[in-house]
Every structure is written in C-alpha cells, then in structure tokens.
Amino acid sequence: MSAAVLARGLAAGYGGRAVVRDLALEVAPGEIFGLAGPDGAGKSTLLRVLVGELPPLAGEVRVLGARPGSPALRRAVAYMPAGYGLYPDLTVAENLDFFATLHGLGGAGRRARRAALLARVGLAGVEGRRAGALSGGMLQKLALACALVGAPRLLVLDEPTMGVDPLSRRAFWALLESVRGEGATVVVATASLEEAERCDRVGLMREGRLEAAGSPAELARVPGVRLLRVRARAPRAAAGLLAGIAGVRAVFPVGARLAVWADEGLAPEALRAALAARGETAEVEPARPGLHEAMLWRLAAEGAGDGP
C-alpha cells in the first residue's frame, strides 16, 4: 500500500521565506505519526501544507496519493489546528452541525452523526452549551468531534493536548487509538517528547528540517553511553563532583536527583564508589532513557544553542 503522506524536498513558509526546508517525510497508512520539536521548528507549517491550507514553495507532496488541498482530500483529510478554531459563541451542537453540513450531511443523517460523535468523545448531554464556556479538555473533545464529522482517512492535529489536564489527555489518546483502529492515519504535532512516545513513529523537527524519524524506541537508543540516576544528599553540590569523575559525560540536575550520562562501561557501583571517595554518599541506579532524555543528550553532546 502506498504512503499516506509522502514529501520530498519540501519547502514551505510565508511571504517567500521558507520555514520548512528540504524536508522528506513518509507516513505509512494506519499509523500514528508524531511530529515533535520546539516552537518555531516548523511543525505547524508542515501540517498546514498537508491539509492544503498552505501551498508549498518547492518540492513534492502527496497526501493519500493526491495533491494536498484537492477537492477529494478536503473530505478525506481532517484538521485540528492549534487553538482549535471553533466558534465560541455557537453551542456544541451548532458547531458540530455546521461542519457536518459542510461535509454534505443533513437532516436525520446529521442528527445521528452528531449523537454518535458526541457520545464517542464523551460530550453527550452538553449539546446546548456554548463552546466558549467549555473547559480546555471539553473544547478539545469537541474539536476532535468536528474533525471526525466527515469520517476522515487522515487526521492532522496541531498540539491537540497542549495544556489540558492528564485525564483529558489520556481520554484523547484513547480516542486517537480508536480512530486509528478504524483504519485512519493520524499525524499529530506535539512539543512534548514524553507525549510523542505514544506514537507509532516520531519525526524529530528542528529549524525547519526533519532530523530523524523512527519508532520512539529507535530514537531513544543512544549507542556508547548509558543513563544513570543519582540521588545525593546535596544534589547541587554533587553535580560539581560528578563532572570531575572519569567516564561521566554529562550531568543534568533534575530536582533532588541527577541524570548522569556516562560511558557505557561505567557501572553504577563504580560511580557510587567514586562519589563516596569524594565524600558524597549517593544512591546510583541505572535508568532507561526516553525520547526526552535521548534528545537532551544529543543536543548537549553537539553543543547546540549557545551562540548566534
């Protein structure tokens, strides 16, 4: 089966200035693909190209085999922009009905679809409430319901869980899984690498480029080094001691603990002994790096971000 999203040499931006540059991307049908990266990395710009909202400046893009924004894709691709873009002065039902009508639904079919979608996202019973009066989590659910109204084959979401509470976030991801379970492909941007681990595959974006893509496990693998977690009596003083120990490559204080990247050969016991020799009793245990930890290590290792 051909790719759900395919891009080659893609450049996109505003006023002729490229925000996304020379980007290659392939998303397989039926997968949940995460786009992770800091603000300004080009995630939103790329998503806007995929939904046909922004014409690319250069390169080739195919979405479900067609040019983004073509009439057939406007039915097959749904978009949930950052901030959702719903009408705050319209009610839950009115918002949903509006988008349903744009997708050609009317009468009993529209009513049935509305009831089914609201039940599915957990908003049954608040049909009459204004969207502007909903909590962040409920608004996010309504936005998803509006996106699903045309039964899309590709769902494109821009930081959908930004700032919502953990319960709503879990419920939202469960919904995404169920949408994918029905055969749809999901492309979701997120600024949180912890959240990106929920995706089947993740693309790491930086300064307009896709730096790497793969499963979270692949991307979190860092050859040649290991992550150790140190809990010391005086963590901030211990950071200085650790930096002077042979085999320690980087030290990151995290509250009462320290995340220590060390040569693969440095055993936890050896580090504990080295600390003890410097007068610090500490607990040292091996830890498994997630996407966030691995990315932090890579950025620190290449000395990124400390000069214009």
Partner: peptide
Amino acid sequence: EQGSLALLRASPL
C-alpha cells in the same frame, strides 16, 4: 482572527 478560517480551508466548503 478566531482561527476558524483554517478549519474552513481544510473543509469541503
């Protein structure tokens, strides 16, 4: 200004 234009653009409207 509301951001709803982005949704309309991506719809069959």
